[in-house]
Design a protein around this nucleic acid. Structure first.
Lengths: 166, 166
DNA sequence: TTAAATATGTCAACATGGCTGACATATTTT
DNA sequence: AAAATATGTCAGCCATGTTGACATATTTAA
């Protein structure tokens, strides 16, 4: 097939760059801007979603670790985390070895909310994977991994691998 | 090779979703957060960069078209576009068929600035492409294209294809 | 056992870049 | 002449980031 659009070799370096950049921009934009009625009617935004996601993926996560994953300051986090705790979506357990730590967990309510939110995105992404084919998905993952900053890669890939060890 | 990390078939649907989502999040984050000293010392932010980029890619772009590409309101755009025009990076020509339109162009100065900014990102992306391999890049593009919202795909892919017709 | 380091939280002020609503102007279409 | 269109502008609000300065509890080190 003569699909020149996806034929990498038919592109100059500059064209590859432009295509990668723009596709990444538009795809990311459309992926994260799913109909977020669920969040919004509860007074939550994307920042809350990110916290719910990472806490859900890493039960018992320490605050410092969450900050590192989100790459924001504790002052930024506090607003968001505060309301999630207030409204009963996240529970903060005191660390057992170190009582200064707050270990974060989703409550049942938090799990329910996260699932509700994730539904649309999951559908969206799996549909895209299906349309593009398994082979393309592998390339997708490889390029994304390569795009992660060198200083972060090891740590992030270990986060991404969490619970994938089947 | 036994690289289970990239072996799509060894993943459940939920695992594929999580991996895609998190890799996309981290890669996008690291890609757009390059050292933006250039912009910042000039008092510009990412919003300004996006405008410079799209005007650079589409000389003579109408304001309404730019708004569509950016997916923001004209009030949001005006702040950003205003300063870029003020400081001599963008020129607004009056439309020749329709004198209500403002056709946007980069000035020499604007071109220079855009190139300066793009340098780092171009390096970053081409390095990732090289590390992942041409084959992966094709998959990357295919998945990203599939991730674009159905309503937008045709139009966006035509934007992305602009000047790729070699 | 006291002093220092660490994990977390909080107050206050500020920046960026979105949003809505209400109008204003110039130009083109009907 | 009236309506529609392309653009601009004023004003205020919101979400989410930032710094800087402290406060508290707890653990570790001297």
């Amino acid at each position: 097939m003569a699909d020149i659009f996806f034929d990498v070799k038919k592109h100059s370096d500059h064209q590859k760059f432009l295509k990668g950049m723009e596709l990444l921009y538009f795809a990311y934009r459309d992926f994260i801007s799913w109909p977020d009625d669920v969040l919004h009617t509860l007074g939550f935004g994307r920042a809350h979603h990110r916290v719910l996601h990472f806490v859900g993926r890493n039960p018992g996560l320490k605050v410092a670790e969450l900050l590192k994953l989100l790459n924001i300051t504790k002052q930024s986090l506090s607003r968001v985390l505060g309301t999630l705790v207030e409204k009963g979506h996240i529970r903060q357990d005191i660390g057992d070895q170190d009582r200064r730590q707050r270990l974060l967990h989703l409550t049942k309510q938090g799990e329910f909310l996260l699932n509700k939110i994730a539904e649309h995105q999951k559908e969206h992404m799996l549909k895209a994977f299906k349309n593009a084919g398994n082979h393309s998905v592998e390339g997708f993952w490889k390029v994304l991994s390569a795009l992660i900053a060198d200083e972060n890669r090891v740590e992030i890939l270990s986060q991404v691998s969490r619970d994938m060890g089947k």
